[in-house]
Nucleic acid binder design. Structure first.
Length: 233
DNA sequence: CCAGACGTTGTT
DNA sequence: GTCTGG
DNA sequence: CCAGACGTTGTT
DNA sequence: GTCTGG
């Protein structure tokens, strides 16, 4: 379950968007770099209305009264038919630029979870397929954007880590994904795993476990091998 | 008809 | 808001 | 996703 | 063990 994200450089994405779709409204501006993004925090999204804006990570249906009814992931196999997602899927699709995301793999022996950072093999950013909603926040007395990312069956490489993975789009698929006239069958053809050779992952520090940590240490490869007890001499 | 749910993942 | 279950 | 809380009453 | 918050 992609439940922890990272974005610290969106310049290439913004250039690519402008090149492909022309001018857009940018309410993000200078990106707030975040190496460790948990649900409920804001992530930038580019919407089918040509707006680049922050959205609450965790989609809250417009009719929901509580923030806690948010969903961070939507299964691509059923997103078109679920009451919480179907309207957003039909009318409000977006791109979510990210530099990477995290998965935790549980060790059967130690029973502890180890974090891994997943990035593009090319060193480029990822673009996740997302859906978004507007939700009235009573505390703030205003509407906010909320979003969720779509998941699918993992490719061979990610399957070693997890049994789901986010839908990651390539730039030649963006237009079809955002176009309001795209048919369900056209959209469906996009909701598949990115090939294994375009993605890689490595273990990272346990610092990322706590949402309070947001330093670059969260995404640096952790090569430290834990010494086994009783092996000193 | 009204009431109540509406979701995913991992783990058991 | 919209669907499902009773 | 993981970490951290998990409760009540009366008083300030 | 399970829920909530970030």
């Amino acid at each position: 379950m992609p439940g922890r994200l990272s974005i610290f450089d969106d310049l290439a994405f913004k250039q690519d968007i402008a090149k492909k779709f022309g001018p857009f409204r940018d309410t993000v501006g200078l990106l707030n770099k975040r190496y460790n993004i948990a649900p409920t925090l804001n992530i930038p999204i580019y919407t089918n209305a040509k707006v680049y804006a922050y959205a609450h990570f965790g989609l809250i249906p417009s009719w929901a009264s509580q923030r806690s009814s948010m969903q961070i992931n939507a299964r691509s196999e059923t997103v078109f038919e679920k009451s919480s997602f179907k309207e957003a899927y039909k009318q409000r699709r977006c791109l979510i630029p990210l530099n990477g995301y995290f998965e935790w793999k549980k060790d059967a022996v130690s029973k502890t979870s180890k974090a891994h950072f997943i990035v593009s093999t090319s060193g480029d950013y990822f673009t996740f397929a997302g859906i978004y909603e507007s939700w009235y926040d009573n505390a703030l007395q205003k509407s906010i954007l909320t979003c969720a990312l779509l998941t699918t069956e993992p490719n061979e490489k990610i399957a070693k880590l997890h049994d789901r993975m986010p839908v990651i789009l390539e730039s030649n698929q963006w237009e079809l994904w955002l176009n309001p006239r795209s048919s369900y069958s056209e959209l469906n053809s996009l909701l598949i795993a990115l090939p294994s050779d375009k993605i890689r992952y490595f273990p990272v520090s346990e610092l990322v476990n706590s949402v309070k940590n947001n330093s670059i240490e969260c995404i640096i490869e952790d090569l430290e091998v834990k010494p086994r007890q009783g092996t000193l001499f």
